[in-house]
Amino acid sequence: MAKKKPKLAVWKFASCDGCQLSLLDCEDELLALAEEIEIANFPEASRAFIKGPYDLSLVEGSITTPHDAERIHKIRRSSKFLVTIGACATAGGIQALRNFKDVNEFISIVYANPSYIDTLQKSTAIADHVRVDFELRGCPINKAQLLEVISAYLNKRKPVTPAHSVCMDCKRKGIVCVMVSKGDPCLGPVTHAGCDALCPSYNRGCFGCYGPKEIPNTSALSKEFKRLGKTNEEIKLAFRSFNGYAEPFRKESEAHEE
């Protein structure tokens, strides 16, 4: 008898779909993946839906509505192993910029009929609501890292997704530091690796898409940004992007509010 394949489900919350698209983007590996795992729910790929429980759930997006705040609990209950994928699910995403303001003001400006809008004051990470077994970083996630997480799950090992700085990847790739050689501000020294140093490879500073690295020293980096001529406002905005609500980045941007 063929062994029973584990069931994979992909869930979407407030997000742009880019992270689950990374799974669909694994073109060369999708067939092999389908051999090893049963894709039970993946609306971006197929309308087929297989009932839970699920062995592995990939959760994309942040919690922004009362309805979603309920739904994530149901998903957690039906998932043995729950992995969040991307900056929205792990840090609230770009939509967490609302957290620094009053969302009701936005609603009144943006929507003709604000009474139809039922939203939460803040956009929050999945881990703020339910227990998360593993967080995969990135905006969007790196498909090679996604495959690594799935492979590790299937082979019962720890995924190799190091939490060190982007700088280590730059140096291993032989990229010349943009901050030291050009004076361009770069978030690489405080940012979690995983993108394979994408922006510095194209001679640009890191935007921090993978969020804070382990023990990030954001204030020391901000001091250096100042020395390079950046204003408080510019420093605030540098930290306040896709991972702006991840705590170390949030605190650093708040420290530069004027």
């Binding site: 590996e29 092999a32 993946l33 051999e35 090893e36 495959l147 690594e148 799935i150 492979s151 590790a152 299937l154 082979n155 090992r157 190799v160 060190h164 700085s165 700088c167 280590m168 140096k171 291993r172 530091c177 690489g188 020294p189 405080v190 023990i215 990030p216 020293n217 020391a220 980096l221």
Partner: peptide
């Protein structure tokens, strides 16, 4: 910054790590 640039740039720093990876099939 504990970014590790000094150790990567250093011509004598020799430390390395070992990573084991599998493919999907195992």
């Amino acid at each position: 910054l504990s970014c590790a640039n000094c150790t990567m740039a250093c011509p004598t720093c020799f430390c390395s790590t070992v990573e084991d990876v599998t493919d999907i099939t195992g």
